[in-house]
Simulated scan of single mutants.
Amino acid sequence: MVDFNTTNFISPSTFILLGIPGLETVHVWISLPFCAMYVIAILGNFTILFIVRTEPSLHEPMYYFLCMLGVSDLVLSTSILPKMMSIFWFKYREISFSACLTQMYFLHFSSLMGSGIFVAMAFDRYVAICNPLRHSTVLTNHVVAVIGLAMMLRGGILSLPFPFLARQWPYCRTNIIPHTYCEHIAVVKLACADIRVGDYYGLFLTLFVLGLDIFFIAMSYVQILRAIFSLPTKDARIKTFGTCGSHLCVILVAYIPVLFSVFTHRFGHNVPLHVHILIANVYLLVPPMLHPIVYGVRTKQIRSRLLQLVPQKGL
Rank of each mutant, 00 (worst) to 15 (best):
D3A: 06
F4A: 11
F4D: 13
F4Q: 09
F4Y: 14
N5W: 12
N8Y: 05
I10A: 12
I16T: 11
L17Q: 07
L18S: 12
G19S: 13
L23N: 08
I30H: 01
L32K: 11
P33G: 01
M37W: 05
I42Y: 04
G44V: 00
G44L: 03
T47I: 10
I48P: 01
L49R: 10
F50K: 14
R53P: 03
P61G: 04
M68V: 07
L69Y: 04
S72Y: 06
L76G: 03
T78P: 03
M85P: 00
M85A: 05
S96G: 12
F97M: 07
A99P: 01
T102P: 02
L107C: 14
L107K: 00
H108Y: 08
F109G: 10
L112G: 06
G114F: 05
G116A: 05
F123H: 07
R125P: 01
C130K: 13
C130P: 06
C130L: 08
P132L: 12
T137Q: 14
H142C: 09
L149P: 00
M152F: 12
G155L: 04
P161R: 09
P161W: 02
P163T: 04
F164N: 12
Q168E: 11
T174F: 02
N175F: 08
I177C: 06
T180R: 02
C182Q: 04
E183V: 08
I195N: 03
V197T: 14
Y200G: 12
G202K: 10
F204Y: 12
D213C: 13
F216V: 09
Y221K: 06
V222R: 07
V222D: 01
V222L: 11
L225Y: 07
L225S: 10
I228S: 08
P232E: 14
A236I: 09
A236S: 13
R237C: 10
R237V: 05
T240G: 05
F241P: 07
F241T: 14
C249V: 15
C249P: 10
V250P: 00
V253L: 12
V253M: 08
F267C: 09
F267E: 11
N270D: 07
P272C: 04
L273F: 06
H274G: 06
I277H: 06
A280E: 02
V282P: 00
L285N: 06
P287E: 04
P288R: 04
L290V: 14
H291S: 13
P292D: 06
I293W: 01
V294L: 09
Y295S: 03
T299Q: 01
S304W: 05
L309W: 04
V310I: 11
V310F: 03
G314E: 00
G314D: 00
L315H: 03
